[in-house]
Amino acid sequence: MSRKHPIIAITGSSGAGTTTVKRAFEHIFRREKIQPAVVEGDSFHRYDRAEMKKAIAASDPLRPISHFGPESNLFDKLEELFRTYSETGSGKVRLYLHNDEEAKPYNQTSGTFTPWRDIEPGTDLLFYEGLHGGVVTESVDVARWVDLLIGVVPIVNLEWIQKIHRDCAERGYSPEAVVDTILRRMYDYVHYITPQFSRTHVNFQRVPVVDTSNPFIARDIPTPDESLVVIRFREAKRVDFPYLLAMIHDSFMSRPNTIVVPGGKMGFAMELILTPLIHEMITHKK
């Protein structure tokens, strides 16, 4: 962790909805005139798209590799980036080009990586969004370098519904292919994704109030108004709960360190909660 070069990380599994949190941070950065170094977690995968297909086919069917686990990620390089940035304000990054639109400016094909490059000097903080912002293994401890770790954790049935709909609509996969991916990733999900949420400073968990008991046949993703957001703080003493309850209509406390807000207020709640934390970071940095 570093006061001079702070690091913020959003962590959540594929389809969890980390983009919503990322958008809230973008609003805060723009409003507060903060220049972040933005890092996407996908850029620290070990294999490009074609290589990953081959690696999956060659892996043990009883313990297949997945994007959630250490075999297909550069956890050591991610920790090295966080450590180097916290010490110097720089580090090595690259981009993963998800589609043809992203790949065109680089004259590359989709599903490949750009070359490694140094972070431009003069950034105020590093902002990571991906699968492994708080990952810890026997040889790697990424979480130790993060100053503010945010977990995005919809209940698992909702997470699967969001992933199935996203991968089918945006990536052209069949529902059966997405379900196969969910099953293949289950070991790594349990051992490398969920443990991170015990290390986070704040967790945002969306809970639907409609029936999601069979996520594999759900036709629609529950809307924000059809859900609640459970927000858990690791350090409740630092949170002004009376202020949040007054500002967020229909919110309530469910535990001494947990506030529940209407799903439609999730973005607003994030900005109320995260803005003072970022203010504190920048104040310490200066």
Rank of each mutant, 00 (worst) to 15 (best):
M1Q: 14
P6Q: 09
I7N: 03
I8R: 02
I8P: 00
S13E: 12
G15P: 04
A16G: 11
T19H: 14
A24T: 04
K33E: 12
I34K: 01
Q35L: 13
V39H: 00
V39E: 00
V39G: 05
E40D: 14
G41E: 05
G41N: 05
R49Q: 13
A50T: 12
K54Y: 05
A55P: 01
S59G: 13
D60P: 03
D60T: 08
L62H: 11
S66F: 06
F68V: 00
S72I: 01
S72L: 02
D76R: 10
E80Q: 14
Y85P: 06
Y85S: 09
Y85D: 13
T88F: 07
S90W: 03
V93L: 09
R94G: 02
H98W: 14
H98K: 14
E101F: 08
E101I: 14
P105D: 12
Q108D: 09
Q108N: 08
S110N: 10
T112R: 11
F113R: 10
D124W: 06
D124T: 08
L125D: 01
F127R: 03
H132V: 07
G134Q: 12
V142K: 02
A143H: 09
V146W: 05
L149T: 06
I150S: 01
V152T: 03
V156E: 10
N157W: 06
E159K: 15
Q162E: 02
Q162G: 01
I164G: 00
I164T: 02
G172P: 09
Y173N: 08
S174H: 06
A177E: 15
V178M: 03
T181C: 06
R185A: 14
M186G: 03
Y187G: 04
V190K: 12
P195E: 13
S198H: 12
R199H: 07
Q205D: 03
R206C: 07
V207Y: 08
P215W: 04
F216R: 04
D220V: 15
L228A: 01
R232C: 02
K237Q: 15
L245T: 08
M247Y: 03
H249G: 07
F252Q: 09
R255T: 10
G263D: 04
G263V: 01
G267W: 00
F268Q: 08
F268G: 01
L277A: 12
I278P: 02
I282G: 03
K285I: 01
K286A: 09
K286M: 12
